[in-house]
Every structure is written in structure tokens, then in C-alpha cells.
Nucleic acid binder design. Structure first.
Lengths: 391, 391
DNA sequence: CTGAGATCTGTCGTAAATCGACATAATCCC
DNA sequence: GGGATTATGTCGATTTACGACAGATCTCAG
């Protein structure tokens, strides 16, 4: 004889569970305060949840704070669930399996040849995900995988998840999220990697608790992720923030995106390597460039300074338009002091005084992990319930 | 003997009232469906509300749609309340008293001399509001004035409501919203006028139901309002979208904002008048310029075309960054075909192909009324309840 | 070591709200 | 006029939430 449950009870229990999920461990008293329900109601609901083993009473010591009976803390029981983050770059695939706090349990990275075929890359990403799950001892059929997030180095249509720009040559018209989902049997959230960097720095890095942030991802290519009023901004077709493909010179060379004179074509890491290669005997790479810069190589630092100023010039325009609070410089180029200083110089010089006064420029805190961390963020956010009243 | 009322009842009644407020008239049956409550519960709540005369049963004919007993429709009783919009420009003050649908009941405009003192302008605005209320037969002490919105031609700090930029010379450091509020005894929402134009066009004009819109306000000055993902974006200090004060020429003349080489200084309406004046016997104004343009004056059209291209160049950068769906060209300059075509030309030429493909450029539908209409929008939005759970 | 104070949790009876079922009302269509 | 359809009113049963009281466990002061 199952008693029919009122909508109200369901809603209240959901509220309690939601609170438990977000800020466990919590005492009954705190639950009552924060839900606005009476203590007895909360007690009743908690009893139910304990009986059905959805939550457990942790005997964890409470912080001693003044007299009074110490609260008995409650936590959602069972495996709290895991998140999976996948970061796909031009040269690497990185996978992290993490707990709900986005603390990685297992993390792996493989190197790829540039311009691997899209499906091959996704195949390898799927294999890497399976490896990581095995190593972490997680079986997605029995353990709760709460979400999978995936980042790719190019713009994605926010609605369909399809790659919409020729920037990512052979990925065009593909839906990488669905492809990976089919291979691993789990739903996948997909997002541009610069956007993920922005999310990661806001959640766990240099932009904690700041609502208006530009994350610049500078490596072989150049991109940016925009967080405006606390939310990721993608634009109508998902190409907002693609500062690498803004026209920088009026009659510049043709870029992989199909345009000419793009910032990335003129000052992206790959171009810098091209420019410097003739002067060096060894084979250069973006990473090698940054090593040379740190060793004090004057030619390299000179050109990194130029690149920073150029990127800063574009960012200055963007900041004049958007009036953000912070710019976070991420990916490999963050290691170059010349590059970051070049950006700062241009910002100071080309933004309006009011904009500049409200603005700060800092290097990334998360570094190379920004991508995966961001993927974990969207993986986690996919689990939060929809607000009621959506039509 | 008043019976203590449960939180639940209060919440449910609020839900019913909210629905009634937004989409009256509604039948009980529809209320039940849309709230998810049972029909009997809704009946009970409705009975209560009818008894306390908070709502009335309108005998209005329902649309005949198939058989069945026709519903008896319900509406919130009493005067549904009024909204007040105030639009302050460099040369005018316009006030509208309107119903909840923002349909103006009384509308008035006065002309001002340029560069009137700030307090004097606010004094005159307050007087105009009182006049309009009297004419509409509304006494704010007895009739429900649900909100007052106010627009000013310069950036405002979103948190404090204080003018933060020297662009509006003698308004600097003033809180015009509070000033007006003190004079008319009603709380006032304040906003930049370009932002208001954007809101108005989205709610009632050319951008209905579009979520990513740039509204360009071009007259003697140049500004823009950004609506991103359906919400107004102001930036961290409220100067987002100030395209008139983006650096356009590297060594241009000094602007009223304190910088040099601003777009507005080079191509704002006032500058165009300055440029053309020597060639004409009569005293020109921006309005006169547009008349001449429509009469086919070649010199004027030539320079309006130039101005449009220049504004378009800046907008193209902005669009490359933001990837919006629509640009609405508003204020007096929208009358010039040359100007609008100039913008379109620049957009086509300087935006990335993907951005351009998703983008449309149209003239404003609301014209000179965009400012007040937007003020009415924020006046109305101030009444909507906060979502629960805000800390 | 003891008592006072403070905070947390469990239990019980009561009041109230919701729900579902049934009855009634008003229209359209055949 | 009868049947179908939709809307509303009413009433009793169930369940839920609430408030008060009591018990539990800690800190702090003396």
C-alpha cells in the first residue's frame, strides 16, 4: 500500500536534497533555516531519506563554535558521483575523471600529430576515457557518472553542438559531442576550449567570484572566452570571442578560417615559430620558443612582446566595448613575461581611462589544466536541475 | 479569530496572483493547469481572492472554441497600476504615463537648451512628471504607480546609479535617479538611454523576441546598448557599449570624454554639422541635416555615408567579438538612408563571413519614442518579484 | 566537578491545506 | 432534445506541515 505523495512533499524533499548535494555536510538545523521549513518538517523528511538510505548521518566532528549540542551532519549517501572532462587540443587529448568538487582522481594525456582526422581523434579520446574509468575503478553502468564535458579548439554552435567554422578544418559540420557520446555511451556537453578556460578560471582559478571576465587562450592559435554577468557568452552562432580571427591587418595573408589579415595568422604561436625558424638551427616549436624566452633570448622576447602588444590592441577594443573586470591570460603563452607585459601595455594605452581603471590583467592560475577543469565544470553544471516555470 | 496562514497557502496564492497579473484574463481551469495545482485548490484560492476583492470575475465573452461550458474569466481588480517613463536627452525631456502594457496615456515633451545644468534639468523633468500625472488623473498617493524609469544620455554605474563618466559634463558624480525620486516621491530606476532603446526595441520594436541585439543610438552623439542572451549588458562600471568613445583615429582631436580620437568626435552628428556649416548660409542642426539629406543634398549625403561607414567599422569589430543576431539603428540618424547603408556596407566588408551571415541591420521601429518606451520597460520590470532563494 | 546556558534533535497532537470524486452548470453539434 | 465537452462548486479523507515540549550533548564559568 503505497501512499500517494503530494506534490508539496516531493518539492520539499527535492529542496532538501538539492541543498545537501550542494553544501554537504549539513545539519538538520541548518537545513531548516535555509529551506525556510520548520525543524520538525525537516526532521521528518530527513528520517524518510535516512530510511531509504538516500542519505547518511556522518559522525564527522563539527567545528566547535560555542556551546550547545553538536549537530549531526548529513550527507548524500553512496558514491557521490563522478565527472568526466575531455580536453581536445590541436596536439593533445587530455582526460580527467574527477569527483563532484572537480578534484581529479585520474588524469591522462596523450600527444597527437597536428591535423589528425577528426574521427580518429575522437576515437582516441573515447579510448582514453575508458582507460581512465578503468583505472579509477568506475563502471559507468553501475556508478553514477553525473556528466561528461568536452572542449574542442574551435567554435561550436551553442544549440546543435555542431562545429560551424572552417577554423577546425576537418571537424566542420561534425557534432563531436554526439560522436564521443556514441562511443562511450554517456551524454556529453561540448564547448569551445577558450570558453572552458574562462569557466575554469572563474570557478577555481584567477577569476574566482568575478562576473565579467575575458579569458585569452594564446598558444599556437589565439582565442578568447567571454563570461559576462557571470554567464558564458557564446553569441548567436557560437563564435563570440574568436579574437584570433578578427581582422588585424587590412591586406594580410589568407588564414585557415578563410579570411585574410587575421590576428592569429599574424601573431599566433605558429606564425611566431615560422618567423623565427630561419634564424635558428634547431627545429622550433611554441614550447621551445617559450623556453628560449625564459633563457633570455632577445630575438624571441622581442617578437613575443610584439605579439602581446598586437593581442592587447584587439583586447583593448574588446574591453572598450564590454568594460570587463578582468583579463586572464592562459595557455602556453602565459609563461612569457614579455607577452603578458605586451598585452598590459596595449591595454593601458588603447582603452579608455574609465575602462582601464576597472580592469586587471593576470596570468592564468590553472595553466594547462584550464581546459579539462572547464570541461569538468560543464559536466557538473549539466546535473543541476532546471528552474521551474520553463516553458 | 484570524487563522494562521501556512507558508504553502501564501506561496500558492502568490503564484495564482502572479499568473493573473501577467496573462489576465484567465479562467480557473487554465490557472489550475498552469500552476500545476488541482482545480479545487485553485477554486478555493480564487474564492478567497474574490471575497477580499483582490480580483473580479469578468463576464467577457470567451473565444468560442468547441463545445463545453465557457470559462468565467478572472482579472486583478482595481486600477491595474500605471508606469512612468522619463527620457532625458541633450536637448529634450520626454515623459510618458502609461498602463501596464506600456501603452502611453499621456505623453509630453519639452525642449531644453543644450548643456542645461543637471539639477535644473531634473527639476523640469519632475515638474513635467507631475503635469502628466495630473492630466492623466492619477494621484500617486492613492493610485498604484508601479514604477518609474528614467533614461539619461550617458553611462551610469549599474549598482549605485551614479553618473560615472565625464561624458555628461555637469552630471558627473550625481545620482539622477535619486534626485528625481526625491522630487516626485517615487522610487526611480535609472539607465543609460542607449540601453533603454535596446530594451524598447526588444520588447516592442524591431528586435521583438531576439536575444542578442545591438542598438545603435546615433544623433548628435553616438552610443550603443547591448542586449546579450536576452539581458542588458552594462559592464562592470556601466560603460559597456559606449562605442562613441572608442578610439577611432590615433591622433584625433580631444573629446568631451577626455580622450582623443573618439568616433563621436570624428563622426557624431554635432561634428557633421560643424563640418558642413561653412558651406551653408542657414544655421544647421542635426535635424536640418537629415532634412537636407532627404531632399537629396549631395554634400550632406556624402558625409552621412562616410559617417555610416565609420560607425559601421566600429560596429563590425564589436560584432566580430560578440556575434549578435541584429543591429537596430535608432535615434534621428536612422532617417538617413545613406547613413544606414554606410553602416551595412562596413559591416559586410569588415565582419567575418560567419558573423555577417547571422547578422541583420535594420532601422529602429520606435524612433524617437524608443527612449521613453525603454524607460517604461524598466519601470515595469521593477515590479516583478524576486525569485526565491536569493541570499 | 557541577550547574547554567546554548544549540540541536525527536515526538506528538492539532490545524489546515490539498486532493480526488462527484455533482452541477453552460455551451456546441447532430 | 440528447450527447459530448468543458468549466466550476462542494465535501470528505488524507496527509502534511507546524508548534510546543522534552531530551540530548556540548561549552563555559566558578
Amino acid at each position: 500500500m503505497t501512499t500517494p505523495e503530494s506534490r508539496l512533499r516531493v518539492a520539499n524533499r527535492a529542496q532538501v536534497l538539492d541543498l545537501l548535494g550542494r553544501s554537504a555536510p549539513v545539519s538538520r538545523a541548518e537545513l531548516a533555516q535555509r529551506t525556510g521549513l520548520s525543524r520538525s518538517t525537516v526532521s521528518s523528511i530527513v528520517q524518510e531519506l535516512l530510511a531509504s538510505e538516500q542519505i547518511v548521518e556522518t559522525t564527522g566532528d563539527t567545528l566547535a563554535r560555542g556551546g550547545g549540542r553538536p549537530p549531526s551532519l548529513l550527507t548524500i549517501s553512496g558514491s557521490p558521483g563522478t565527472l568526466i572532462g575531455v580536453d581536445i587540443g590541436h596536439r593533445h587529448v587530455r582526460v580527467a575523471v574527477a569527483d563532484l568538487a572537480a578534484k581529479p582522481l585520474v588524469e591522462r594525456e596523450i600527444r597527437l600529430d597536428v591535423d589528425n582526422s577528426a574521427v580518429e581523434t575522437i576515437d582516441r579520446a573515447a579510448a582514453l576515457v575508458r582507460e581512465c574509468l578503468t583505472e579509477a575503478g568506475i563502471d559507468p553502468r553501475t556508478d553514477r557518472v553525473l556528466g561528461v564535458g568536452m572542449g574542442i579548439p574551435g567554435p561550436v554552435d551553442p544549440h546543435s553542438g555542431i562545429v560551424v567554422s572552417p577554423i577546425l578544418g576537418n571537424w566542420m559540420d561534425l557534432a563531436p559531442g554526439e560522436e564521443l557520446a556514441r562511443r562511450i555511451g554517456l551524454p556529453v556537453q561540448i564547448e569551445n576550449d577558450a570558453n572552458l578556460g574562462a569557466l575554469a578560471e572563474i570557478e577555481y582559478g584567477a577569476a574566482r567570484d568575478i562576473d565579467d571576465v575575458i579569458y585569452v587562450k594564446a598558444s599556437s592559435g589565439i582565442g578568447a572566452g567571454l563570461v559576462l554577468a557571470g554567464k558564458l557568452y557564446r553569441g548567436i552562432t557560437g563564435i563570440a570571442g574568436e579574437i584570433g580571427h578578427v581582422r588585424f591587418e587590412d591586406n594580410g595573408p589568407i588564414c585557415r578560417c578563410g579570411n585574410r589579415g587575421c590576428l592569429e595568422k599574424a601573431f599566433g604561436g605558429s606564425r611566431l615559430v615560422e618567423l623565427l625558424q630561419p634564424a635558428y638551427d634547431e627545429t622550433l616549436s611554441v614550447e621551445r620558443l617559450l623556453e628560449l624566452a625564459q633563457e633570455g633570448d632577445i630575438r624571441v622576447n622581442r617578437i613575443l612582446d610584439d605579439a602581446g602588444r598586437a593581442v592587447g590592441r584587439v583586447l583593448a577594443d574588446l574591453c572598450n566595448h564590454l568594460n570587463p573586470a578582468l583579463i586572464v591570460v592562459g595557455d602556453t603563452m602565459r609563461h612569457s613575461e614579455s607577452f603578458v607585459l605586451g598585452i598590459k601595455d596595449s591595454i593601458d594605452r588603447f582603452t579608455q581611462p574609465d575602462t582601464a581603471a576597472a580592469l586587471d590583467v593576470v596570468p592564468s592560475e590553472l595553466g594547462d589544466k584550464a581546459g579539462v577543469m572547464g570541461a569538468l565544470v560543464i559536466a557538473g553544471s549539466a546535473t543541476s536541475a532546471q528552474p521551474p516555470g520553463t516553458i
